[in-house]
Each structure stands twice: as structure tokens, then as C-alpha cells.
Design a protein around this nucleic acid. Structure first.
Lengths: 136, 136
DNA sequence: CTTTTACCCTATAGTTTTAATAGATTTTAA
DNA sequence: TTAAAATCTATTAAAACTATAGGGTAAAAG
């Protein structure tokens, strides 16, 4: 299951990308238009900012704005920041690798074998989609 | 993340397929060889039996055995039974469809668009893998 | 100096996961 | 017919995670 955090984060990014102005957009506006709990969205936007996707401006006329062009924002990086590892099992994760404690030999593990394929296919999708692709 | 339930279920199925005899295999043997909590495995094997993957025999010399040939067990059905929907969002699920309450129009939803692709790519993997493929 | 906004920290209800516990039931074999 | 070997069933519980709410702080603008 995709967490609501990721879902809302993606929606917020899309919203900012489609607004397309470089004027900051307020949290409240995004929350209202995308039907998201404002407080929850607040924390999501914060992590998106901390991870280099968004910039922010405080005070009147403040808000959030995209730092990069939508074409330059790959879904791989968005997913990793919001949802965590793309792999369904740590032992096939590129960025978050961990050995399974119950598994003596990864190369003989059926789960490993299957999940490697699932990871690769998911990666291909995420690599082929930028934020710009999700708008059109 | 793949649940341990699914992981263990897959391992158990693989074990049964690789044993290859039609003699029932005891839970304890599977649990020991695959490093799985026996009681947990018990409930997993039960759901696999209830869903037509396994047969069981009680009493001395009892245990679990595959009902179908490994070549006939598709990963799509195994995953749906153990892990649930293959889609990451209900609104793109084939077998468990549900409308998002926050989303006025699915066709314009960026999340929908992306997750549709992810689902399709995952489905392709699961459809191309039977239990037999995971052994070799 | 007041308003508006993002920022930050904490708590919490609810759900899901991952089992552990205890026993009931069925079958086989001595 | 008894005992042992298994599966079955139900209940409970700890832990982790999710999705939010509340309340206060800091900064920017006018």
C-alpha cells in the first residue's frame, strides 16, 4: 500500500507544478484544493523541502514553491524520500540494502529472485516518469 | 514492504515444491529449514490451504503438500492471497477496486496515473513467474 | 508592532503486523 | 484402546507504523 504521506506529497508536487508560477503557494491552498489534512500536509512539505524538492518563504505572501523544473524531478527520488525504499525487501534494495537474518544464501532465495524482478520493473516506471509527465 | 507473512508463505511454497515428493511435509520441518516461527507458519499454511494451494493431512505422518504442479501456480494468485492487492492504491486495483474519497476525478489524478503503470509492471512480473520459476 | 505564514515538537487514537499462548481435534500406529 | 503426532482454532499481546491534532516559535512583510 502506498502511504497517504506519499500520495499527498505527490499531489502537492503536482499542484505546485501545475500552478507554474514562481510565486509561493500557501499550505492552506494546497490542502484545500487537494482535500488533504492541512497539518499532515505541513509535515510532508517540510520533508520535501529538506530533501531539496521545494523552497519556502515565511510570512505574508509566503508558501512553498518548486526548486527544480518538473522535467528534472524523477519519481525515483520522490518515492525514495516519501515512501522509502522502492524494493519490497531490504535484501534487494539498491539504496537501503540489508541482509535478511533468516536467509543463509540470497542467491538461492525464491523471494529474493522474485522481488528483484519486481524492483527492477518498478524502477523502470519511476525512472521513466518525471513530475512533468504526471501533469499532462 | 513485503510482509513476513508473504515472505514466509513464499518460502514454504518453494520448499514444498522443491521437496517434490507427494508425501506430506510437516510444519516443523519447513519452519526449521526456513527459519520461520512455527506457530506463525502454521497460520500461513492454513490460509494457503483454504485458498486451494495446499492440501493437508492430520495425524502421524501428516503435514502439508502442494495440490497443483509448481508450473501451474502463478505468483499473481499467491501474492493476492498472502499480500493482498497488487496495486499500491485501491483506485487502480483490478480485484479490489475502491474510489478514493479525496479524489474528484481519477483520470486527472497524478497518483492514479503513476500507480497504474506500477501496477501493470508488477502484474507482468507476477504473471511471468510460477512457483516452478522460483526454484531453478 | 501586528499579521501572516512557515516551522517545530509532542501526543495520541487507530490500525496492522507479528507473533505467543493454550488448547481442541483428528489420524495413525502400537 | 491408548498414546503420540500432527493439524486446527481462538484469543491475546507487544510492537511498530499511520494519520492526524494541538500548541507554540520564528521570521517576513507591511
Amino acid at each position: 500500500m502506498l502511504s497517504k504521506k506519499t500520495k499527498y506529497g505527490l499531489k502537492a508536487l503536482t499542484y505546485l507544478a501545475s500552478v507554474d508560477s514562481k510565486e509561493p503557494v500557501q499550505i492552506a491552498e494546497i490542502a484545500k484544493n487537494e482535500n488533504i489534512s492541512q497539518k499532515f500536509l505541513e509535515s510532508i512539505l517540510l520533508t520535501l523541502r529538506r530533501n531539496g524538492f521545494l523552497g519556502s518563504k515565511k510570512g505574508k505572501g509566503g508558501g512553498y514553491y518548486l526548486i527544480k523544473k518538473p522535467e528534472e524531478i524523477q519519481m525515483t527520488s520522490v518515492m525514495r524520500v516519501l515512501e522509502g525504499p522502492i524494493a519490497m525487501v531490504p535484501c534487494v534494495s539498491l539504496n537501503f540494502y540489508e541482509k535478511c537474518d533468516d536467509c543463509p544464501d540470497e542467491n538461492k532465495c525464491s523471494v529474493h529472485k522474485l522481488m528483484l524482478q519486481v524492483r527492477d520493473s518498478a524502477l523502470e516506471v519511476y525512472r521513466n516518469n518525471t513530475l512533468a509527465d504526471l501533469i499532462s
